[in-house]
Design a protein around this nucleic acid. Structure first.
Lengths: 180, 180
DNA sequence: TGAATCTGATTGAACTCTCAACTATCCTAG
DNA sequence: CTAGGATAGTTGAGAGTTCAATCAGATTCA
């Protein structure tokens, strides 16, 4: 209890190679970056628009869908949410009157989530502030070289995390896709 | 309601410049990367060690502190947690017997959080799996060039987020610092 | 000294997310 | 046509986080 040396040493253990000093520093910076970025974005949205980032992602996705509506499962797949998470989130949006659900005619099990007029208005009001924050925190700070590097790094890491993310190479993207 | 065009256009609005296609793609990749990485790490720790990533960060930090103990506020500042979050988290660790709290003699308001022997054991068991996951998801995939690039990008972004993060340039880092 | 203020930490409510059931519908093979 | 299994989505409990309010011990200064 009064030992000031860590119990974890930088030698292999259980067949695991530990991180070296450089890797540690990078990992620490990455984690901190994630954490602070996430908090900054969430705080901005929560404060200025009364919604968490995940809800913004949902209404932004809906706003770009044909008829402003999508099947729950489509939505979940697109945003990589669990079905349960999506149900809870859309239920919450519904309570606020920003979204509505409707049974799917072709499949009795299915549900559509649709953006309401009110929801669309809320999104329109929330988007500028959100995008400004993204810009301010990230794109205004990075050189175009760094931006390209970042893209490559993310794609590389995603390859190992998300088999289905060789995604969207040429899909005509839309602006509110600053979401997720 | 049956309008398939997005309400958000890629023209300036409210003085905010929207993201262009490249920026959007990068931003999307970054978000997805964050999300999946975070889930992967959290799931691994939760599944194999019964704790969320944030709790791992706490016990790892404690394990490296002199006497395996730190003031609540120190701990919170180091990990960039709110006081409230830290209180709740340490309370949870205490319930599991992994940490203990003790009043600070010099300052009646203060509290120390200390790692228990049990907590140290739990950390020792959890660390290899966690580090392996970090390695597998990130460092095994990136070239050393990419690693350097990533470090630079994170530092750049952190400059705008966290004034106090020009941090740890030469502090003798320790292994369990794969935390946070 | 003693009021006003500041600081370290805690509390409880509200909310989101996860996980493990569970319901309802659809599909398929016998 | 019906039993078994797959699919779409929901439910509720448990946990972590945030926020605002609060408490108690320090500090300041008149």
């Amino acid at each position: 209890m009064s030992d000031d040396r860590t119990v974890l040493r930088d030698e292999p253990h259980d067949g695991v190679r530990w991180l070296n000093a450089d890797e540690q520093a990078t990992w620490r910076a990455l984690l901190l970056c994630y954490q602070l970025l996430d908090e900054a974005l969430d705080r901005q949205l929560q404060h200025d628009a009364g919604m968490p980032h995940s809800h913004y992602a949902i209404i932004a996705a809906l706003s770009e869908a044909p008829g402003s509506a999508m099947r729950m499962s489509e939505l979940a797949a697109m945003l990589r949410f669990s079905p349960s998470r999506m149900t809870h989130a859309v239920a919450s949006l519904e309570r606020k009157g920003w979204a509505a659900r409707a049974r799917c005619p072709e499949d009795g099990r299915g549900q559509f989530a649709a953006l309401t007029a009110h929801g669309r208005m809320v999104l329109e009001r929330a988007a500028p502030g959100h995008i400004a924050e993204v810009r301010r925190r990230i794109f205004d700070r990075l050189t175009s070289t760094q931006q390209r590097q970042l893209r490559g790094i993310c794609d590389t890491i995603l390859d190992g995390l998300d088999p289905s993310s060789h995604a969207s190479p040429h899909r005509p993207t839309r602006i509110s896709d600053t979401s997720a």
